[in-house]
Write a protein that binds this DNA or RNA. Sequence first.
DNA 1: ATGATTTTTTGCGAATTGGTACAAAATGTT
DNA 2: AACATTTTGTACCAATTCGCAAAAAATCAT
Lengths: 199, 199
Amino acid sequence: MLKKPRGRPRAYDPDVALWQALETFWANGFSRTSLDALAEATGMNRPSLYAAFGDKKSLYLKSFECFAGQLRAALARTAQSDAPLDTTLREFFYEAIEIYMSGADGPRGCFIICTAPAEAAMDADIRAALKAALAEIDEGLEIPFAKAKAEGHLPPDADTAALARLAASVLHSLAVRARAGETKEALHTLARQSVQSLC
Amino acid sequence: MLKKPRGRPRAYDPDVALWQALETFWANGFSRTSLDALAEATGMNRPSLYAAFGDKKSLYLKSFECFAGQLRAALARTAQSDAPLDTTLREFFYEAIEIYMSGADGPRGCFIICTAPAEAAMDADIRAALKAALAEIDEGLEIPFAKAKAEGHLPPDADTAALARLAASVLHSLAVRARAGETKEALHTLARQSVQSLC
DNA sequence: ATGATTTTTTGCGAATTGGTACAAAATGTT
DNA sequence: AACATTTTGTACCAATTCGCAAAAAATCAT
């Protein structure tokens, strides 16, 4: 049933190329990343990049959305965890730290927290994407707190939204700290101690 | 005793010009800010900018240091406060929020947290400056916690360094949220609730 | 074989970018 | 007045940047 489309076949896989672009933006931020760098990373010439993804900002926003998708998946796994709240939270942070510390040339922190703010004050689209991502993190992190409260592991008057936002603040901080070069041990310590304070 | 220097007098005040450059970098980030934009903001031609401040990155780092100086002053005021810990912390956050929400064209968050990470992965000097600033925030915020502990307002086994780092995380988060366009009320709420959790 | 479609390649253009050389301007010193 | 010093202003440069037009390549459909 898979009908071969007409025309010259693509020399790239769109998902692979998008990930390669994302990695380039992740390391360099939006403005510092040139079309030449994206072309080199993806092996595509500039007209092909434009044809496949649109202009530079469109490609950035698609990369942002791709990264946000992975964040969404991590939040969903955290929401579905049956482990105790502190274990759930700690594992979420540890997983984030793994991603933040990854990078061929060193730690990159979080794509969203580390590259979008620089652009956000002057670009309404990037600002909106950032704001939406922050809200998703807040909402996603509230679920394990609400579950723990419903199961009696938190006081009945605990403000789960407030706790979630505090936990999200820890995530933002881990992101920036990783990019600044703090050690993995320091990040783990902050994660552990924050979980202790929150639970 | 003030001897008039030889040569043509300067047409600018270095401190004023530096602040103007800082504001431009604050809104646009490092890479998005052009020399023309800096020249326009300061009223100086490019050769004059180079003569006064060095190249673009030098000017950015000088701006960073200028902003860090103001942060240092705010931390010092917080360290010297005689108010109760929760009041001290809340006022520190409220003051930060005022700065983060300032801006002729909208909120800019924190110069350091919102502009340096984008560059930090690929520029060791900016990364080092960011890391140093993060450490200063951690250390500065530990002082009120240590005071409160010494005065018996915190349990004797309270880990003041951990609490300070959690408070610093809130500050980082406020910075990013402000830049993303969250409301002042939402930021105040996060600040208040975090202080409640921390004290 | 021809035509239609899709993608790649090559080459290009206008604008911008960071940085600099040098002459002119504006002062103090001798 | 001539010279030395400091700063400004003008003009320029090489390189880079983003985006695009058009031809060539590679396929399927008739």
